[in-house]
Computed example of a mutant assay.
Amino acid sequence: MIAVWIIVLILVVVIFTSFVTIKQGTVGVVTIFGKYRRILLPGLNWKIPLIEVLYSRISIQNRSVELEFQAVTVDQANVYFKAMILYSVFDQSEEAIKAVAFKFVDERNLMQALVRTVEGSIRAYVATKRQSDVLILRREIVEHVKEQIDNILEGWGYHLQDLQLNDITFDDIIMKSMSQVVASNNLKAAAENEGQALLITKTKAAEAEGNAIKIAAEADRQASQLRGQGVALFREEVAKGMSVAAKEMHQANMDTSVILFTMWTEAIKHFSENSKGNVIFLDGSADNMQKTMKEMMAMHALQTDEVKKA
Rank of each mutant, 00 (worst) to 15 (best):
Q148L: 08
N151A: 15
M1D: 11
K240C: 01
Q180W: 01
Y55K: 02
K214F: 04
K23G: 15
Y80W: 10
M178H: 05
L198H: 01
W46T: 12
Q148T: 13
K103T: 06
E192A: 02
L135I: 04
I280R: 09
I200Y: 03
V307P: 06
G210N: 13
G284L: 14
I259M: 11
M299F: 02
A310P: 00
E154F: 10
N278I: 07
T169H: 03
I149C: 01
A83H: 10
D106P: 01
L50H: 08
E207P: 01
I200W: 00
Q131G: 04
I2A: 06
F281G: 09
A223T: 10
L199T: 03
A246C: 04
A113Q: 12
I149T: 04
K176Q: 08
D133L: 06
S132E: 13
E66Q: 05
R38Y: 14
A99M: 10
T31K: 11
H159L: 05
V30G: 07
K291G: 01
I213F: 09
S59L: 03
A219P: 00
A71W: 13
S184N: 14
K47G: 02
E140K: 08
K247R: 08
L110M: 11
Q61S: 09
Y125C: 04
G155H: 12
V89W: 00
D305F: 04
S56M: 02
I22W: 06
I268T: 11
N62G: 08
L282C: 11
M178Q: 13
L9K: 05
S224K: 10
